[in-house]
Design a binder for these strands. Structure first.
Lengths: 348, 348
DNA sequence: CACAGCGATGTAAACCTTTTCCCGTTTCCA
DNA sequence: TGGAAACGGGAAAAGGTTTACATCGCTGTG
């Protein structure tokens, strides 16, 4: 077989292109009677091309409905214009909010967003991250639950890695973290100023770095806080209330707002009034937290800012230093002085 | 502000292959002393290869940390093992839930999920869809707001198109729709049975097909329903309450649960008790709807099922018929007989 | 014993685009 | 008018993988 450029295995130029194979740059080139190189120059822009030819090419491209094949572009450029985002739970409004923010930032710079939810499973998270790393220019891991060694592996496997709410000692990994240490101290100070002494903390997933940060914050706050295993979802909060009440607290600190909403719901069922019988606080300031009954006192940090900062870390010139984001205390109706002498107990 | 770092013109002359450029199939082939074809056969599986060679190849791949380049695979196979999902608002828990469902289904079949939020903007939605169509094997549009002609264009541009909560007369488009017509009738019947007569409906986005379905349902229900412009977000609901109250309704039907939560919040501020002063219902049964105060009466349809059905439509053998999904009325605390004679008015 | 059949492996084409390297033409200035 | 610079545009390589086809050695059967 002669090694010639006889590349034309009877390709129909126009009509039935819609169904099977899409139009390629060759189709455009043939129709415009130029080389494929010229088509590329016209469509990708920047390079000098005479206006007439450019018009002819554009017309031809329009006619056959040409759209560059992203796989081929990616192969050649070595960049897919895509980032990957891995979150523990896509259904959690907080993560949804972060995803929304980062996707908007990425889209603004012409990047796509590949997403994976991991159902809070560290193994699945690791697999998703490694798999996504093959595809994307940069990987964003939200509150990753996986072990540090695994995280390092992911760092090696990915072109660029940015963490949200987790830190890792590694030369090429950026991170944006909310200062939960500060947040928890703020919340504790607020509760202490109201006169609360018996406080229960509903723990998040044990593998969550951000949970450990909160716990450190408690120790720093110097308040005696009883810990009760809980989780990160609305259901977890709902389910953990009864256990928490056995400690006869005057205030409850939920791992996050999502949990707190579940807590409020269960307390209502039990006939326990918030904040008269019991104060409740959350963390994160989820969108719904201003609309619960009563409004949730919480520690607010802007997810918009979080997303923006994370996106900055993807820039090639970005430092790999960890960005700390401080929020602020938002006092709403769910906290008050402990009024009644006798603390409540579960109704069953 | 590194706003335009998107394309990276710094291309190294590929001298240093070990650190920067990832290992290719050639590296593996060389190390294992076989041809690249054999490597591919071993790693992709299916083809007959002698056990010894297979082991050698696997060892070599392991050693150099080889991972196939997805762009090259995509280019050749013509399939990216990726679907695209476009939703009007990533921050809306309902869409987040659907995204979660479909992403899980897709991941279960080895597919990735590319996502785009459109901020409820039909134009942006159209652009996102067209752009995503280039990349993905199939496109899922959630409650698309774009015009029918645009939708047809997207259908032409995409290999496979599936719609959620929208229909389109087009030969190759599948759809999964919630029977809002039925849902609204159920809600109306429920309210009517309680004795409500003055009902206000807080409209969704005017471009939403599903809003039109609801409106048709109202007409079928035969109840006089006053329409008030609102929207689809929590904030929209919060903001529309005052306007709605000028019509002195005994019951409020929100476009969806997200809106209803905003409504409840505003009513609380106004000192209007639900359901004593006013009944409120939503649509969708969002996760939080069981946990509001009072619990939200709503029309529930499983997002899990929605996701599953949508995924089925991506199967090559799937029919392009529209799948109708019926939900059921969920009665919670937010509805009751209208008790007081005098209807409430806004407090200001 | 010859040959069909098969299993294992190598070779190279094909996928589609971008970009580098060139060549031919025009323009401008000395 | 000659030469250089600028410019427009074509040919072809590169990018990594899969697969159709070719090759080669072996076994089993007529």
């Amino acid at each position: 077989m002669p090694r010639t450029w006889s590349n034309d295995p009877v390709r129909k130029p126009t009509s039935d292109r819609t169904s099977a194979g899409r139009a390629t740059i060759h189709d455009v080139a043939r129709l415009a009677e130029v080389s494929t190189a010229t088509v590329s120059r016209v469509l990708s822009g920047g390079k000098p091309v005479s206006p007439q030819v450019a018009d002819r090419v554009r017309a031809a491209a329009q006619e056959v409905g040409y759209r560059p094949n992203p796989a081929a572009q990616t192969l050649l450029r070595g960049s897919s214009q895509t980032i990957g985002v891995v979150v523990p739970d896509l259904g959690n409004p907080y993560f949804a909010e972060i995803l929304k923010g980062i996707a908007a930032e990425a889209a603004g710079d012409g990047h796509h967003t590949l997403v994976a939810g991991t159902e809070e499973d560290p193994e699945q998270e690791y697999r998703s991250a490694i798999e996504l790393a093959r595809w994307v220019d940069g990987l964003l891991l939200c509150a990753p639950r996986m072990s540090a060694p695994q995280l390092k592996e992911v760092a090696e496997a990915s072109r660029r890695l940015v963490l949200i709410n987790r830190v890792l000692r590694h030369p090429s990994v950026g991170a944006v973290v909310v200062d939960y240490h500060h947040g928890v101290r703020e919340l504790c100070a607020h509760l202490a100023s109201l006169g609360h002494e018996r406080i229960v903390y509903l723990e998040g997933p044990s593998t969550a770095w951000s949970d450990q940060q909160r716990q450190r914050g408690f120790r720093a706050a110097g308040l005696p806080v009883t810990r009760v295993a809980c989780g990160s979802s609305l259901r977890d909060g709902y389910a953990a209330v009864d256990e928490a009440l056995t400690h006869e607290p005057t205030a409850l600190i939920a791992f996050n707002d999502h949990v707190a909403v579940g807590v409020l719901s269960r307390l209502r069922e039990l006939g326990i009034t918030v904040p008269d019988d019991l104060s409740v606080v959350g963390v994160d300031d989820a969108p719904m937290s201003a609309h619960t009954d009563p409004g949730l006192t919480t520690y607010a940090v802007s997810t918009v800012e979080l997303g923006r900062q994370a996106w900055q870390h993807f820039s090639p010139t970005a430092s790999t230093a960890t960005t700390h984001l401080s929020g602020e205390l938002v006092v709403r109706g769910s906290t008050a002085r402990p009024r009644r002498r006798r603390t409540v107990k579960p109704s069953r």
